[in-house]
Structure formats: C-alpha cells, structure tokens
Design a protein around this nucleic acid. Sequence first.
DNA 1: ACGTTTTAGTTGTTCGGGACAACGAATCAG
DNA 2: CTGATTCGTTGTCCCGAACAACTAAAACGT
Lengths: 411, 411
Amino acid sequence: MRAPRRVGTGTNQEAVRRHNLGTVLRHVHRSGQLSRAELTRRMGLNRSTIAALTGELETLGITERTGPAQEPGERQGAGRPSTGVRLAETGPYVIAVDLTVDHATVARVGLGGRIQQRAHATTAGLAEAWQVGAAVATLIRQVVADAAPAAPLVGIGIAVPGLVRRSDGLIRLAPNLEWHDVSFSSVVLAALGVDIPIVVANDADLGALAEHERGAGVGIDDLVYISGQVGVGAGIIAGGHPLEGVGGYAGEIGHLRFDPSGRPCHCGSVGCWETAVGGHAIAEAIGCSAEKVAQLPEHLMALTSAPPELRLIGSDIGRGLASIVNAFNPQLVVLGGYFSSLFPLVRDDIMSGLSGAAMTATVESVTVSLPCLGDDSVLLGAAEAALEPLLVDPVGSVGAALLDVPARLAG
Amino acid sequence: MRAPRRVGTGTNQEAVRRHNLGTVLRHVHRSGQLSRAELTRRMGLNRSTIAALTGELETLGITERTGPAQEPGERQGAGRPSTGVRLAETGPYVIAVDLTVDHATVARVGLGGRIQQRAHATTAGLAEAWQVGAAVATLIRQVVADAAPAAPLVGIGIAVPGLVRRSDGLIRLAPNLEWHDVSFSSVVLAALGVDIPIVVANDADLGALAEHERGAGVGIDDLVYISGQVGVGAGIIAGGHPLEGVGGYAGEIGHLRFDPSGRPCHCGSVGCWETAVGGHAIAEAIGCSAEKVAQLPEHLMALTSAPPELRLIGSDIGRGLASIVNAFNPQLVVLGGYFSSLFPLVRDDIMSGLSGAAMTATVESVTVSLPCLGDDSVLLGAAEAALEPLLVDPVGSVGAALLDVPARLAG
DNA sequence: ACGTTTTAGTTGTTCGGGACAACGAATCAG
DNA sequence: CTGATTCGTTGTCCCGAACAACTAAAACGT
C-alpha cells in the first residue's frame, strides 16, 4: 500500500481533496477495474463522496464508468449492482525507458500499467550519452506516433544501470555504460525538443517498484529486488516505500564486503559480492566470453543443468542474500536480471546458502521468487515512477501534461 | 521530519483535525517551546487555525501559553510579539525502560523528552525474565511515586538488546540475556497489575529514533545508529521513518558477512561482522576478561591510546561501516554503545577503513559522529516510541491514559 | 514623544468538502 | 409479485480551515 509521506506541515482541505482524488485513482490504477462500492469499502469514505470523486476523474477524462452489467453469472449477493470505474481508453499515459548495457527499450504505458506500444533498439555501438539520447528520442517518437492526440502525456521515466542522484536525476556513475556525471534527462529532452516532467532512476529501484505495485510483491510492504545486469544492485521497498538514502544510492548491495581474500572490484575495494556473483564471474563459470556478458540470460537458458562452478556461485548468491536478509528483513526477495535465469539452475544451492548463513528470525519470514513481470519489471517500474505525480495530484498533473503529442513530437 | 504513513484509505475531516492537532504537538514536542507565529510558518496553516489548535491542546492540559515576554533583549524584528506555546508541567508522560545485559534503567519522561525522574538497578544475578520484570516494576514504582496525580501516563516503552517481533513485541531472541520467545511486556504489566499501552523494541532501533528526534540526527532523514552492547546491531532511519522489515528485525548488521575465514558466530554462521568487532573481540584486544565485557566502555575510557590490536579492529569497523553505507546510503552514522568510547581512540582507522572500502558516491555524503544524547539515546528512544501514539492522536491518547498513577501503582 | 509600520491575536463570516438522510433504482430471494 | 438488500442520487448539515476586519503590542522613524 502506498501512502503519502507528508512532512511536518499541516493539512488544509484542498490537500484532503487532492489526496482522496489521488487515492481513488491509485486504486483504479492498481486494480484496473473496480466498483464504486468496492472503493467505498477500501477507502472508508461515504458513498456520495466516492461518487463525487469518481465524477471528477471522469470529467478529467481519466476514468470512465462501466454499466453495472459486469460479467453475467458473476452476480453474487442481493442488491443493486454497483457502477464500475475503469481507466479511460484515451486517458493519460507516460513514456517508459529501460536502458541497459547494450540496448534500449521504450514503451508507451497507460495508467494501470498497460503497455500500449513498445520499441526496441540496440545501443551497442553508441559510446556517448548524446548518441544514446538521440536513439532513445527516436524510439520515443515511434512509440508515440499512434497515440490518441487527446491523450495527455504526463511524463517520462528512465531506468539506468548506475548510481542516480535523487535530487536531480544526474547519473553519477554507470560503470557498465562508462558514464560519469551525465544529465541524461537533459539530453533526452533536448533531443525531443520539449520540456515535460522526466524522472531518471536506478534500474533495480524501479524493478522493485514495479514488482511491488503489480508483480510478485503486491500487498507486500517489505521486499528486495535483486538486479543482475552486469553489475549487481538492489531496489528495496521498506514499509511500502522505496528505500532511497540521502543521495538516492541506497541498495548498492553489489558492493557489500563478501570475501576479503577475493578479487579486486572496479569500485576500488576488494572482494565485493559483485566480484563473486556478478556478470563477469558467472560468464567465467559457464565459459562464456567476456564480450557476451550482456547476453548472459540467453546463455544460461541454454543450460539444462548447472556445472559445479555455477553451483558454487549459487551458494555464494545465497550467502550474500543472507546478509541482505539480515540487514533489511524483507518478506520477499525477487531475483531479477540474469538471476532469473540462474535461479532454476541453482535454486537449492542458493537456498541452502541463504538458510545456512542468515539468522533464524529473518530467514523464516522470507520467500525467494522470480519476478512476475518477466523482463518488463524495470520498464514498468520506470512507468510507475513517471505516473507517480499523477497519483498524487491528478488535477495538477493532467493540467500540466502535454497534449497533441504525436504532432508535437513529430518534428 | 515525521510524517504519517497513512495507507490507501481516504481522509475524512476528523482525520484532518487529528493530524493537525498531532502535528502541532509534535512541533512543540520537538522544539520544547515555540511561538504560535512559528507554528503558522512551519505548518502553513492560518493564524486562526493555529490558535484553535493550540487552544485545544491547552484545554487537554498538554500545553500552556507563555506570555509574549520571552527573554528580554532577544526581541528581533518589529511587530507584536507572538504568544508562546510550551509543554505543561503536569502534562502527559511515559515510562521508558532501557534493559541491557547487566542492568536496567527506568525513567519517567515527559513530552519534550524531559527526564523527570530516573532509577537504576543491576540485573546481574537475575536469569529469568520474570525476575527482571519484577525488578523493572519496582523501579517503575519508584520513578512514578512523585509524579503529579493529575498527569496522565500514556504508556511504557522498553528497549531490549535482541530481536523483537514488531507485531506483538515478543522478544524472539536476546542472545546476551539468554532469552527466547519472552513476552516481556506481559511480564511487566502483570508485575505492575495494570493494563496500559506498552511497546517493546530493539535497543538500536530506539537509539536511532532518539538521535533522529532530538540528538545528532535532528533534521537528518537518513541515518544509521550503530549499537555496541555486547552484540552489534543497528537502528536505521530511512526517509525519516524507522526501517523495520516485516518482522521488525531489520538492521541486524552484526551478522553481515565480513570474513568467511573468520570465527564462527553464535548465530550459526561464520565470520559475521560481530565476531570481528563485537564486545568479545574488543575485550580480547585490550586484554579485558570475558566476564567484564558489559563494562567495556569503562575499560576503553581508561585507555589513552589504542594498542595495535585495537587499531586493527578500528579498520575492521570502518570496513564494515562501508558495507552499511553502501547498503543504506545514510547521511549520518552515529556510533553508540561501546563504539562511542572506541571512536576517539581509533577514529583514523575507522575513517580510512570506511573510505577505502565504500563507494565514492555513498561515502562522500556520510558523516560519522558520536551520539548527542550520551548514554541516554536508547532510554529516550524508548520514551519516544511510547509517546508516538500521543503525537498521532492527542485527544484519544490522553483520553485512554492512566490518571492518578502514584496511587494506582502504589500497591 | 508621537505617529507609522509591522506583526500577531481575536472574532465573525465564508466556503469547501465529507457525512448523513431520504428517496428512487436495480437486483435477488422467496 | 413482494420484501429485502444494496447502491446511485440529491439535498442538507456540519466541521473545520481560510479569510477579512479589527485590535493589540512591539520596533522604527521623525
């Protein structure tokens, strides 16, 4: 469950209205379709209040009402059936971008997490950030071309494998892209020639967000999403909220100390967990060449059983997870990136490494699972992040949104 | 800054009033004394609204108004001076209990974190929880004897060095007390013969809370409080809120993997950080006998310079902190417990261990400091935890509080 | 010393928005 | 077909925050 993190300031009545309107929309966003009666139950507000709120969302063009005729035969209980609320077809949407080491995925995503259109391109040859920015802008134009002109574009969300400063979205360091201090949001906006809200964040953090909102972690307020791209990172949801840290760099669990007698790490330290279970270590274990680390999942999929070297790495994954579980006490650990492909192969090794090294109290409340959103966790997380302002202030967000998008971005 | 973590439910207008009233009280609680003008500035509400809210707190007997005559000579700026709001002398209070390995400290603490009376006793000979509970009850009676009968007792907060289950306050495991699955809250309430709100929590978590509210971490929303009693634990404030984890066990950083070739740990794993920097390791390094581990701070204070063995441990502390800083990206690390005594001796070793092993981005935004509340961090944290309901719903909390306490607990 | 300016407390009024009650509508159970 | 149940709609009420007007208390300027 999401909740506002309002600070020590007071609440006036317009804030109440905004909050209630946003909460209604958040419920619809999460459930896709639900009845007004269900909304009154969940929000604890009066029927008439819910009616007013849903009415306002309708006039904003965000939702529409469905006739009380739901699936026939589904009727349970007596009484007049409740009017349904669902997301409007031409409602607000966002652009989500998932940037990885060697390719970019861009999608137009509506409320409810519905991917309306997607595009994909390699970025293998592009070293400079402006080149990647231009490629992303092209993909965005493709994806937006068929959008309804009346539908408002609320913002852009971009997932990046690296350390992103929370205050301004600056990419401080993306080791596997070899970027330092890149303001990628400015690059993309300049390439598009518009100025709209844009949020850049770490891929693991966004993966965690998506799995929490509409994946394996729905209803779970404490979870860790482990991202394996080439480096290893984690996104953490604690108490239903993303754990960010002052700068936004929290969750860099690839650089937890794992074995001081291990290998030196690119971060300057020695024996980080990433040196034991990172992409390069795994590529080495399965005899995959260093240039193909980005295609690790495919190589892992091709295996039917795990070679001994890989099983050792599985144990090390488990032992590292033990530290994470002791530190964060999550209810769920989601293994994303190449760990998804690895998990079926070395599940037993991971689990025994975990339960052998973690404390009883923390390990007994945790489940390890695969992502429910497949490879789209991070992409959908970027969409969620971009949609967030809409769920906080629907009126303001729609008012500030960009209209007539296909035409405006055509140039 | 504290903020409500309201869930997906709607906000009705009584909730607004409750929230605003609680927020006013929270500000007074934090600042001790402040003007109504300051409140209007901080809360963004209208003058007249603040007047109504402070008026309600006065009629509840929680606060009182001070004449506009503040310290003479302190007058700055033109205009009519604002009426002050301060905590009432006989306002609500709580009982705070700090339980350590060999002694118990109990205090009567008023709003604003003012310790009104305290008592102290050794628990060295007491093995069973009910014995400790009886000792604590006796201390509570002492501390409460002189309280004003009109002052309401809101609740009890107890800090325990161990794993405490969040849902019900059960002590799952307190290794250095040798307790397993003890419902200490029931024990204390039974010994007192009353039934009032009582909260049990981990000592490090409460230390973090206190340092965040009124110690070294005021205004800092991301901090880690490291507790060194005999074991090593951490309390984490993330985004202004305590990081709890599903069960409430988050922050068990004593059992992060530190050196797989290290010693076996009582938790069942090998080479946990605690085996390198825990009380026993340090006692050994300074040639202090194992039975006197609980008096480690005194022994450390006696040292004027650090022996080489201790400096090595200092480096290990720094390297462990590096993992913590990478995982949580705090703005501040507060070294509590025996680490307070240790820090002046091996500061350079800790800091170089930290900056050598942590990532640039995370280490450059962190400060390492001593607690501002001395040995009372944990005790005041217990008080804060017990006061929390009062700051969420002043009316309800005062209504449910116990009156005429000295007489009622006399038996 | 006196008026001006600035800021705050107080009071009465306005207004927004959620609660509530009354009524009609839609469905199910018998 | 009737009663029960549940829900949408509408009008009213009421709480509480905002606002405006006035008064009070201080500093500042001449």
